[in-house]
């Protein structure tokens, strides 16, 4: 079974864990550096990016998170999580993790009263995806390696760059698990087979 971590410092942690479990993978809450051990992939959830960032620093997680990214394992950021992944954030001198080749602007669609739901058309996905945008960011610029997966009103709201997946909205707030399935498919099957508690081993 794939082991997927969710950074559990603040925000919509429970929802992501439910979605992971609905997709038949194991969900692990990550609060400390040691919680990253043995994970196949990691999700940075929605929440308040400034608050999550402070917490990352105080827990000594910044280094371990960057090292995790360097292993090539998949990372998925939703809303605040996308801001944490971005290579640059508009109006800020330094990025947070700074690992994904995109520039992100915060609160791009206005304040909470402007927050909205919309039916999105996502590349490679049949039918509309009901998306919830809450004080959402968007991708202002995407590097050459980035595949744009969805735009809304001319703004990039979902993209993938190699091992990194990011979206402006909150798939975890709906019961549609297609984006989670997409992310789980980014985990190479070989990595999964190496786990000692994998079903192949347990049958031996």
């Amino acid at each position: 079974m794939k082991r997927i971590g969710v950074l559990a410092l603040q925000g919509a942690v429970r929802e992501h864990m439910r979605s992971i479990e609905a997709c038949k993978a194991e969900a692990v809450a990550v609060k400390r550096p040691k919680d990253l051990e043995g994970l196949d992939a990691l999700i940075l959830p929605g929440g308040e990016s400034t608050a999550i960032r402070r917490s990352i620093d105080r827990c000594g997680l910044m280094g371990p998170l960057r090292e995790f990214a360097e292993t090539g394992k998949p990372l998925f950021g939703t809303c605040a999580g996308l801001i944490l992944l971005a290579g640059a954030v508009v109006g800020y001198e330094e990025p947070h993790l700074g690992v994904m080749d995109v520039v992100v602007a915060r609160n791009s669609f206005g304040r909470q009263v402007d927050s909205f739901e919309a039916a999105l058309s996502i590349k490679g996905m049949a039918g509309a995806f009901e998306a919830v945008f809450i004080r959402a960011p968007h991708i202002v610029r995407a590097g050459p390696s980035v595949e744009v997966l969805c735009e809304h009103e001319g703004k990039i709201v979902m993209a993938r760059s190699g091992q990194f997946l990011g979206c402006s909205f909150h798939p975890e707030l709906t019961d549609d698990h297609r984006i989670m399935e997409y992310f789980l498919n980014m985990v190479p099957p070989a990595a999964e087979a190496l786990l000692p508690n994998d079903s192949i081993y347990s049958k031996v």
């Binding site: 929802e15 739901e117 919830v132």
Partner: peptide, 21 residues
């Protein structure tokens, strides 16, 4: 087409505050 002020948008905003002060 987008819709503002739905229950999911309003309750979802509070979900993003969880674990916070």
């Amino acid at each position: 087409m987008s819709e503002q002020g739905t229950n999911r948008v309003k309750r979802g905003m509070a979900e993003m505050q969880k674990g916070g002060v």
